[in-house]
Amino acid sequence: MRIAIASGKGGTGKTTLSVNLALKLAESKSTALIDLDVEEPNGSIFLKGKLINSLDAQRMVPVWEQKKCNLCGKCPAHCLYNAVIRLGDYILVMPELCHSCHACSELCPADALPMQASPLGTINHFQENKLDFLESRLNIGLEMASPLINQALAYTDKHFATHEYQILDSPPGTSCSMIAAVQTADYSILVTEPTPFGLYDLTLAVETLRHLSQPFGVVVNRWGIGNNEVIKYLEKENIPLIAKIDHQREIASFYSQGKILYRDFPTVNTALEAIISHLEALK
């Protein structure tokens, strides 16, 4: 079963929950954790396993061949991302802006823009105890999150297909990279906190998942800091409340050091057990 852990806003505890849930599941079931927050992958701060496999993720970008080019001027017009620019007798390609659509290359009458592999990021496969952990890290300055997410998911399909649980740590927000992650999942868990900010961002995430017709439930983190509004909202909207994790200052301190929580904090452990039985009941 593939579970996406997502949240409308950053900083609600999405990565913390993903890491702790995956480690707990791995105690008794075959589990893989896939960090898809490729712009800011922080899962590896909490997990320090053995590196099993490391791949350079690539994508295709055009490369200008001056000798073949007849300077017809079509390629800048074909590129709607402004990634191909003409400066007099030169054609410049800016890989950072390229979406790998192949239009400039395949529509070039002189074959002067062949596509070549270019670095996108890295995908690292770690093992800690029985947990498989996949980290995908986008190169700085690139905005191509979705292709790297798709490559990490392809790796998951190939290597973790028989695992009982695949946990996806999704990108935050409701952007297209978040959508790329959650739409492949069987079920999503939205992590929120009981404050007006948390609630507002949750409603955006709920709208998005409903738009995608994806089933989901909610975990409320830092229970005790805010108010009851988020619970009222879930009841009104008929959204399952899977678990609440109590707020404790000590948890924030543990987290800041990159430590695992559930063995030291009963509230986290109880919440994880509730999540696991919720997931088991979905089967």
Binding site: Y81, A83, I85, M94, L97
Partner: peptide, 9 residues
């Protein structure tokens, strides 16, 4: 996207 390159052009 790509306002910088466009202006450089």
């Amino acid at each position: 996207h790509g306002a910088g390159p466009k202006s450089a052009e």
